[in-house]
Nucleic acid binder design. Sequence first.
DNA 1: CATGAATGAGCCTTCATTCAT
DNA 2: TATGAATGAAGGCTCATTCAT
Lengths: 192, 192, 192, 192
Amino acid sequence: MSKEEKIIQAAIEVFREKGIEKAKVSDIVKAAGIAQGTFYLYFPSRLSVMPAIAKVMVEKIITAIEEGVSTQKPFEQQLEEVVDVGFSITKEYGDLVALIYAGIAQTEHLKEWENIYAPYYAWMDNFLLQAQQQGTIRASIDTSRSSKLIIGLIESAAEQVYLFDDCKDETMKLVKLELLDFLHHALGLRHP
Amino acid sequence: MSKEEKIIQAAIEVFREKGIEKAKVSDIVKAAGIAQGTFYLYFPSRLSVMPAIAKVMVEKIITAIEEGVSTQKPFEQQLEEVVDVGFSITKEYGDLVALIYAGIAQTEHLKEWENIYAPYYAWMDNFLLQAQQQGTIRASIDTSRSSKLIIGLIESAAEQVYLFDDCKDETMKLVKLELLDFLHHALGLRHP
Amino acid sequence: MSKEEKIIQAAIEVFREKGIEKAKVSDIVKAAGIAQGTFYLYFPSRLSVMPAIAKVMVEKIITAIEEGVSTQKPFEQQLEEVVDVGFSITKEYGDLVALIYAGIAQTEHLKEWENIYAPYYAWMDNFLLQAQQQGTIRASIDTSRSSKLIIGLIESAAEQVYLFDDCKDETMKLVKLELLDFLHHALGLRHP
Amino acid sequence: MSKEEKIIQAAIEVFREKGIEKAKVSDIVKAAGIAQGTFYLYFPSRLSVMPAIAKVMVEKIITAIEEGVSTQKPFEQQLEEVVDVGFSITKEYGDLVALIYAGIAQTEHLKEWENIYAPYYAWMDNFLLQAQQQGTIRASIDTSRSSKLIIGLIESAAEQVYLFDDCKDETMKLVKLELLDFLHHALGLRHP
DNA sequence: CATGAATGAGCCTTCATTCAT
DNA sequence: TATGAATGAAGGCTCATTCAT
């Protein structure tokens, strides 16, 4: 693992553990096993690791989606898998997403956020588009816009369970069912 | 306006303008027109104004909803008003919401967030419940869970427009339409 | 008890408990049951209570000496009582003495300390003088100078026991015996 | 001179000049010719230099004793030299001793003080022990306990002169004589 | 490339003191 | 006399960043 990768991994670790404000460069370099000055050979400032962290995170999201959704299956099942993966992502990276969001909100323009999530949005757009072309979901959907709505919706639902709720397993199933029902209707899903 | 209110107003102003990390207590007291020490008579630390800000914000949200939605009109029109108000709220307070969310993520447990939004959730729950009882929306909806989904959905949509997008007015109408369509289907809206 | 007395008593309490630097005016007024501003009606500044505390302390010392030493008994027994009382004083007020000493060292001229202890020195001087006039102790002693030496000696001995040592009771008796032996020889005590 | 030594020397200087409470870290670093932050690389807090100062001071005391007392001469002359050195020490470091004592009283347990003075006590103990073994002072003395008494005694006497009195030179000789006389008797000194 | 000691600007917070009531 | 809210100066400490080695 290169020094740069070490730093990014250590930063993820430390930011998750301590939060943005309390994550010191000294913590990160300690976790990375490098010297204080070395950090600045790779990143110009403390918060400039954030985009790199975001990139790593989105890569993981994309991988999870691609691995978790079987393009062979019927759309209805795929949709269920999309929700499952979305929940897994929030479970595993929800705090990290919130962190990066906050980090970006504090530094650069929030618009940057769209670029970060772009691959996720693109995947979802394509997912809907294909279903639409096959007549599985209603034709009136604007897949580009709805892809963002759906991602927001899945995240909202998952946050209800993982960030806020306590009795997770129980709630999770109920929320997922409600969400799937919601999506079925929203997408005008036709059971072929 | 009491000193405490002055501080909260000034804090809102400064946090919005400078972001969490760069908002100094000295900025806040200057904006509030009080002495540095006075701040600490009302709040034990710099970030402890956050919950107070959140409370003010939610009060404004509730007021906006109650004023913006005419309970006399048919549900379909009310829903449109709900979306309109939701968009207005995000337009006006979106950055503040993001700020508070980040501020809370850095200090207390994220669960606190649910308490803050509780009145908004409660209103939405009741809104759906009445529609359901009148048979306007499908009976299979769990209004409590869906209220959160819908609020998340409206916020996602509005953020697309106001936080990220540039060409706002144009986009806004399209996104709103897409969202309303999405909701109509999701809720199984019956046009009476 | 007058307000002024209340303040002095509260100050003694708080200074003993928290030490000089950490004893806040707010602590003192709270302990005294008065308002913050009232303190400044009686004392011009935070540390200006110190002399008043010192005065109270010396009064207690004098009282203890006068009550604890029986002028009727032979000198040898009186000397033992003087040592006993000296030890009691250090046990009870040793920390306070150190406190006042430090407090004075930080503010005014250390010379003030002599004025504070003056009554104690005077009593000891007189005590020695009478013994000398009766031929009980050696004539070559300068009672004025030696009174200070002896007080310093008793305090040193008692501090060994109460401020520093752990196994107090055991040690105390041994130290007292050693000290008395030391004093007997130093004073050239004649057993009549 | 290492940075740490520079800090200690500067701290001694500043604490003596301004007293404990008014000695600011900024004063110390200025005197040491280093940056403010550098102070905290070597000491965790402002008052944590105190023990280091104490150590330096005791080293100086030991050096002064070893240089000022000629172990070859007869005990009586050595005792005079011990008193002379003791007076010199108080003259030169008396204020520092009071300072450190107060500083320690404010922070750590007072017991620490005994550890600091331990080398001085040990030297005196040994000094007495040898005289006792040679029959020069009375056999009934417990040298360990009396070493502390004697050090307390010398300090008391010297403080009378240097800390409190004005007409120093005059008084000094008289006090010294009185003290030596006092010690001769107390120790049961035999003039061989 | 790597190091880590050194820097120093800057902020949060405390608290003695004041003063209008 | 008494109050206690308000003041604001002041300082300990942190920590991102630099740079000589």
